[in-house]
């Protein structure tokens, strides 16, 4: 496998539909999520490991796990 092609999984939030309830923040094992000014969930991409816990918890189901280049 060629190096540099490694993918990293990240949680992506649909900010427009986010209810900023903070359910995701509560379950995040890395404390990577904060609620930005009470408007939407903000994921710290340096901390996020794409574990999917937030996506499962989100009552609006608006968090997706995406694969991005490192």
């Amino acid at each position: 496998m060629a190096e540099g092609k490694k993918k990293k999984r990240l949680a992506r939030v649909d900010r427009d539909l986010c209810a900023s309830c903070g359910c995701c923040r509560k379950v995040c094992p890395r404390e990577a999520i904060s609620i930005y000014k009470g408007l939407y969930a903000l994921v710290d991409e340096a901390l996020c490991i794409g574990c999917k816990k937030c996506a499962k918890e989100c009552p609006a189901s608006i968090i997706e796990i995406q694969e991005v280049d490192r």
Binding site: A19, S20, C21, C23, K37, G38, L39, E57, P59
Partner: peptide, 28 residues
């Protein structure tokens, strides 16, 4: 029927506090 905290999505208090936060964020 749905997720445990589905209420949070349409909770009127939550919608109101979001609106307040929107106004406050713009003020800043």
């Amino acid at each position: 029927l749905f997720k445990p905290r589905s209420w949070c999505v349409y909770c009127p208090m939550g919608t109101m506090t979001t609106l307040i936060c929107k106004v406050k964020a713009k003020e800043c």
